[in-house]
Design a protein around this nucleic acid. Structure first.
Lengths: 354, 354
DNA sequence: TTGTACGCGTTATCAA
DNA sequence: TTGATAACGCGTACAA
């Protein structure tokens, strides 16, 4: 029924023996004012449906928007392996910041493309500039970075959470965060700190883990125990912690790479009859909206995502406007948020502003 | 420095006194093979940057892709007031389903446009077909629906969570869900059921509330108490419940329109020294990933989102392929998931499959 | 109803 | 080394 190939208005015209302009009129519901015969209208509409005609959006835009009103295209490129909320967050930020006085003269539309981690190079139009005027790119892995350092994207680009030579980027001081987490657990009296992370790792996650390892070892004298969960969700956190405890694991302090992993761990810990923070102190990452409301409220580090995305978007807009022309690196600070789950030992309310 | 107006390659040409072909060659890094002098290359590149030249993507695509390889454009349109995860979920689903054998001959790209609830009509290209070949539309409000029923979008469109005459849509049986919630609270011994919702309402939320009102009144003999939160987050749930309890409100059963509102309520309830489910039974909506892990695990209704979005995407693809030509309504079922938070009265483990 | 110019950028050809 | 010119991609608008 439907042809795979894109059909053009010209092919329709040939097939029907009707002029191109007639077809265009009919397809744009201008047939009344153009006084096209009902019969022709019917024939054209049916044929278009039958043959699966879809107009070429580029051609329409080219014709319909004067160059002063033509919107530029901003692309959001992210891997399938990215945390799901990223796309929403980036797009919403794009729209919000785009409405600000400073940038509202930039008339843009947003496209989203997803790639398999490591396969960025397969994205059409990445290097030849046929698909976007500017791009935000997130969640590349080393293979992609290698590809990017060998090739040049000539449009403005900002990388999120990753630092790539010759391009702009925004990231957090992930390494520092890991170290702070170790300090906080140690200050709360933990001697056997455990770190729980997902087996899916990004540059940021790796840095956090390394920071934690370093300081945990320096402070407690031995390497921290590392638990690897299958993914990022509460369920994965629960399972990893349950397995660890079931097999007799020893723990008095926990640092998780996301808050959701901590929330899952809570249940496993409680089921063993252990108390937070009396037996185990816990600190997560990301200040998820549930963290202040669970029992006990979870200590964590501020959500860097929001600021991260906002900085990324602003940086991109500035590049588009030409305010910034050199590759620029922005580092977004991350602050600890201390709540009940680490309230033990020498950490008090008073020190919450570390 | 930068001109607001879009600059074309022709204007650049005039300004520099350099031919169009030369400029095009330089801008596409073809200057070596064309043997353009280094000086000209430099001048062109600088001028392009200086003047803020951005190529017209439509023109480039038109030229670069043969009609058989030209991608169609699928738009995701949603209001700023929509729950944030929606965009990510819809886009990911679009990409995943688009990779399936059945649909992988559809070559498409995705654009996202956001509108203020009630201002859908202001979206450029909505009616004239200049921006997309097909669209998924979510989170319209009655004003938008009215606009849509007076005008026609001629491309394939699927509405998510909303039923609009003459268009395809996917939704859940929200009304039934509300009624079931009332039944479950009543069965667990609640006489003073309270419903907590956000002041931002969609068609789905309204239906849930109405369903609940009806059955709660039928079962308990009087109208349920209604609490209105400022938004959807845990914080909003906490505040609404705290205010209610502080002002002496009576409650022995709670139905919330999202799980996050229930999570926030948990803390307010516990702070008052009340116990769940002994004093108050609670049921949420959406089966959020944290719900099984909070204390006590939260009863809720299955997350309909995922299925909802998948159905929407499939429906859209079928319309694009011409497999379906008539407006079609799909209803996605929602099931209760009973956990500790409603385990009181006549509801037992045994009845968990209601 | 139809013919044709047009929107913008790319590319090829030939001339300068 | 650069320019002028034209064709092209697809759909639309306007004059005829």
């Amino acid at each position: 029924m439907t042809k795979n190939k894109q059909v053009t208005i010209r092919q329709l015209s040939k097939e029907l023996g009707v002029s191109i302009s007639t077809i265009s009129s009919v397809l744009n519901n201008r047939h009344e004012e153009r006084r096209i015969s009902p019969d022709t209208v019917k024939r054209v509409k049916e044929a278009a449906r039958e043959i699966g005609y879809l107009p070429n959006i580029s051609a329409r835009m080219l014709r319909s928007y004067s160059s002063s009103k033509y919107p530029i295209t901003i692309a959001v490129l992210t891997s399938f392996q990215a945390p799901l909320p990223l796309i929403s967050s980036v797009i919403t930020t794009l729209q919000k910041v785009g409405n600000e006085d400073e940038y509202k003269d930039i008339n843009f539309n947003v496209t989203v493309d997803m790639f398999e981690a490591g396969e960025l190079k397969k994205l059409p139009g990445l290097l030849d500039g046929t698909r976007f005027n500017a791009a935000l790119i997130a969640n590349t892995i080393p293979t992609d970075d290698e590809f990017l350092s060998e090739n040049v994207i000539s449009s403005p680009v900002v990388f999120i959470g990753r630092d790539i030579p010759h391009y702009s980027s925004v990231k957090t001081v992930a390494h520092m965060t890991g170290r702070q987490a170790a300090d906080i657990l140690y200050s709360s009296g933990s001697k056997d700190p455990v770190i729980l992370y997902s087996k899916i790792l990004t540059q940021t996650t790796i840095a956090r883990i390394e920071g934690f390892r370093e300081d945990a070892e320096r402070l407690s004298g031995n390497k921290p125990i590392e638990l690897v969960a299958e993914g990022f969700t509460e369920k994965h956190g629960y399972e990893a912690m349950k397995n660890f405890l079931d097999s007799g694991g020893k723990i008095d302090g926990l640092y998780t790479i996301t808050d959701s992993l901590a929330v899952g761990s809570y249940l496993a810990v409680k089921k063993k009859g252990l108390k937070i923070p009396e037996d185990i102190t816990v600190i997560g990452t990301g200040d998820s909206s549930v963290s202040p409301y669970i029992d006990p409220p979870l200590s964590t580090f501020t959500r860097s995502q929001h600021n991260l995305h906002e900085e990324a978007v602003r940086l991109l807009f500035k590049q588009i406007k030409g305010t910034i022309t050199m590759p620029t690196q922005v580092v977004v600070p991350v602050m600890p948020v201390l709540r009940e789950s680490t309230r033990r030992g020498s950490i008090t309310n008073f020190e919450m502003g570390i």
